[in-house]
């Protein structure tokens, strides 16, 4: 461990290309290695089509969420990480409250990062699967616009799925 910084100094490797991602929500900036950022298909398309300037603005994603996304991309850009390591790291990233997860899934969708979209969707599913309807409505900001009669009719259509369910 002690010799690691020295090795870095001595290394004559070509300078790594970096990109700066900037959250347009709170103007927080993140400098990341290009190969890390390119795990986002959205960013890759921007870079490939020469649409990316020195600073890539990321709309609708806060610095807090962007930091999680970058952590995910760093982990998955590391060629020496084993499948087990990645699983553990992913579990750590999605060990968040439901509202953070919803922001994260939107970020993964916007930046087009398939793996992050999958693990976050799975985690959201796990978090809501034992909740009553009222809580699920609250989480997804859903307003019940059925009349009681309509709701009863929808229930009756699939009575088997509601068996034993209040």
């Amino acid at each position: 461990m002690a010799s690691a910084p020295e090795n870095e100094k001595n290394a004559s490797a070509p300078e790594k290309k970096t990109l700066t991602l900037k959250s347009m929500i709170n103007n927080e900036e993140f400098v990341v290695d290009e190969h890390v950022a390119l795990q986002s298909v959205t960013i890759k398309n921007m870079v490939d089509s020469d649409c990316a300037g020195d600073v890539i603005p990321v709309p609708t994603i806060s610095g807090e969420i962007l930091a999680l996304v970058i952590e995910y991309c760093k982990n998955h850009a590391n060629p020496s990480a084993s499948e087990d390591d990645l699983k553990k790291a992913d579990a750590g990233i999605v060990a968040k409250d439901i509202y953070t997860l919803i922001d994260l899934v939107l970020a993964a969708n916007f930046l087009d990062i398939k793996g992050l979209l999958e693990v976050t969707s799975q985690k959201i599913a796990d978090s809501i699967k034992d909740l009553p309807h009222q809580d699920v409505r609250e989480i997804f900001g859903v307003e019940n616009d059925y009349t009681p009669e309509e709701e009863a009719a929808v229930r009756a259509e699939h009575d088997w799925a509601f068996e034993g369910f209040p």
Binding site: V105, L106, S121, A125, I128, H133, D145, Y146, A161
Partner: peptide, 27 residues
């Protein structure tokens, strides 16, 4: 409230069938 349908459907894909059907009464 702005979660698009395709993300909601993706979330549903990780849930038991009867749960997904029960979401029909959310709205």
């Amino acid at each position: 409230s702005s979660l698009p349908d395709d993300i909601l459907v993706r979330i549903l894909s990780f849930l038991p069938v009867e749960f997904t059907i029960r979401t029909s009464i959310l709205s």
